[in-house]
């Protein structure tokens, strides 16, 4: 006790940032844990993690067939649209629902082994990224099958819809788009994870709203259909999509993947969410990082 009692540094930004960097350095740990989560889930099943791919394939096929008939759309353009949207949605859904559960489900480890909180955040985000990669197999299959339809310049997803440039080298924009979404997943998991550990109603709120959000977001329908139906008088109905942040996240990644016109405002909105979200998450991490082990 040479230096005398110092002030506790539990609630400093320095410790919060140290937590993040220490977590990032333990890449092998969260990488291993995330893979293990996936292997664990499909242990002793014949197909193993291929079930992720298969179930996505079945869902995409079913949704594509049904909704292309309902909306009277060309299957060659509508099925890739739905499939891609659904794959992106699945990543967002996983980060939201499993994000709320991040620290709660790791209670045992948190109370028994000292580790930075960000390890559990990265474990969840990485697990979702692995699942996303599995689902992307379906994307490649669908694009291969409907290559002709989606590469045609000026194709439209539904009849009379906006003409789209068609699949071209712009598809590479999907890489920064996914990276940006994954960065957002980080703050979502961190923020929702900490808040849910303290307030156990949050996971329930998220679960009960998530289905509604799915149908409110243009995934099985498109903004083309909205404009087509209401013409110039679309007015407030357009806001259903525009005011929904998830629409911008989905469109950010979906548009390059199926050769759609990419509007810059999606990047701006998602970028703003990234900055504000991380600031909020850092504030919460600073103040409540040390409380999580008490709350779980």
């Amino acid at each position: 006790m040479s230096s005398g009692p110092p002030a506790s540094d539990s609630r400093t930004l320095k410790r919060a940032l140290a937590d993040l960097s220490a977590g990032a350095r333990q890449r092998e740990l969260w990488g291993h844990l995330a893979w293990q989560d996936i292997k664990q889930r499909y242990r002793r099943s014949v197909l193993g993690p291929l079930w992720i791919t298969l179930s996505m394939g079945i869902t995409a096929l079913g949704l594509g067939l049904l909704y292309s008939q309902l909306f009277d759309a060309e299957i060659g353009t509508f099925l890739p649209y739905i499939t891609t949207g659904f794959i992106v949605w699945n990543f967002i859904l996983g980060c939201l629902t499993e994000g709320t559960d991040t620290f709660i489900s790791n209670e045992g480890l948190i109370k028994h082994l000292p580790a930075p909180l960000s390890v559990y955040v990265l474990r969840t985000v990485w697990r979702q990224s692995i699942m996303f990669a599995h689902n992307m197999i379906i994307y490649f299959i669908v694009i291969a099958i409907f290559w002709g339809s989606v590469t045609t310049p000026d194709y439209s997803i539904t009849e009379g819809g906006m003409p789209q440039p068609g699949l071209n080298w712009g598809v590479l924009l999907a890489i920064p788009a996914f990276a940006l979404i994954a960065v957002n997943a980080g703050w979502v998991v961190l923020l929702f994870g900490i808040a849910s550990t303290r307030f156990r109603d949050i996971p329930q709120v998220v679960t009960s709203l998530i289905n509604l959000l799915f149908f409110m977001t243009p995934i099985v329908w498109s903004t083309d259909i909205l404009r087509d139906k209401f013409g110039e008088s679309v007015g407030w109905r357009d806001l259903v999509a525009e005011l929904n942040p998830l629409y911008h996240f989905i469109q950010l990644l979906r548009a390059p993947l199926i050769g759609n016109e990419q509007s810059w405002h999606h990047w701006a909105i998602v970028g703003a969410f990234t900055v504000v979200g991380w600031l909020l998450a850092l504030l919460v991490l600073r103040n409540y990082r040390a409380r999580v082990s008490y709350w779980v």
Binding site: S8, K111, L113, P114, A290, S293
Partner: peptide, 13 residues
């Protein structure tokens, strides 16, 4: 757990 750093003290350091 306090000595391991899992629990950071609610008061003190």
């Amino acid at each position: 757990r306090l000595l391991s750093g899992i629990y950071e003290p609610t008061r003190g350091a």
